[in-house]
Design a protein around this nucleic acid. Structure first.
Lengths: 148, 148
DNA sequence: ATCTACTGCCACTGTCATAGTTACAGTTAG
DNA sequence: CTAACTGTAACTATGACAGTGGCAGTAGAT
């Protein structure tokens, strides 16, 4: 493993909200689809709300809805909303300053790792929730045909 | 944070081995530069050896050396030698099969995440240890000039 | 007014990966 | 035989994470 599964949860939830776009979903409904927990869902959707991707209403009949069109939300948006630190982690301690190599490795690695992370983020930014939803619907149609 | 710092340690060690290419280094020497522990270094260099990037000799006077030219070792080589699983982790549990979205999300995310990870790996594959070493030496020359 | 169904949030648990450390057996040069 | 290494297993401490229960706040339904 590496990172948390929060990105997966976030993208899953966003796609569900896009699928049932006309009405809001509760954290319990989303948790059911994830085979997970409403509190967990609320925590992650809370981050998405802070990032302006969704909004929520309290009280009876409340729930969650998208704050933007699905085609205006990329996987990168979801990813950066819920994931904190860098992917490729740096030295646990700063290396020794007495070593000619150690003196510079931190700065060099920082540059290399940032570039590599940016490449990944750039790729995530190319896929939108709308794109994912389209694939989900296509797969559902296929299933419907097979079960006829 | 995200992943382990093993990649950083591996790249650091490889660069040191390239810098002092004529003779081998002990795990204690490398650990000193990392401000870390010889056992940790041996564990990580062990993975690099399994991947064919370095070799080691036991007994007195033993130590570690590169098994290839520095320009033939990329950061991706080091990364995949020491890092096990995927970066972007998937759902903790498989989602509910009863949900039209949940049924398909795992496969779709798998494809998206693999593409994103590949983009990162591709970027890491573009930088070699030789490139890093060149930068270290350049920075050392600068320092030498300033301290004159 | 009260009930019901939500969000929001805190505190806690169990689990797991990792960094770090100690210990010791095996290997090799002096 | 001794000193200096590698190789490896066992252990600890730390921290991130998923998951859970509890409870205050909010708002529609009756």
């Amino acid at each position: 493993m590496g990172l948390s599964s929060r990105s997966a949860v976030a993208i899953h939830a966003l796609t569900m909200l896009a699928r049932w776009g006309d009405h809001s979903l509760t954290s319990a409904e989303i948790a059911d689809s994830l085979a997970s927990n409403p509190v967990l869902v609320r925590r992650i959707l809370g981050s998405l709300r802070d990032a302006g991707l969704v909004w929520s209403t309290e009280g009876r009949g409340g729930g969650w809805s998208l704050a933007r069109a699905p085609r205006e939300i990329t996987l990168y948006d979801a990813y950066t909303a819920v994931e904190a630190g860098p992917i490729l982690s740096r030295h646990a301690h700063p290396p020794s300053d007495a070593c000619a190599v150690g003196r510079h490795m931190q700065a060099l690695l920082e540059a290399e790792f940032r570039d590599a992370e940016r490449a990944m983020e750039e790729r995530l930014g190319r896929t939108t929730i709308a794109h994912l939803l389209r694939q989900v619907l296509a797969r559902e149609r296929e299933l419907a045909l097979q079960n006829r």
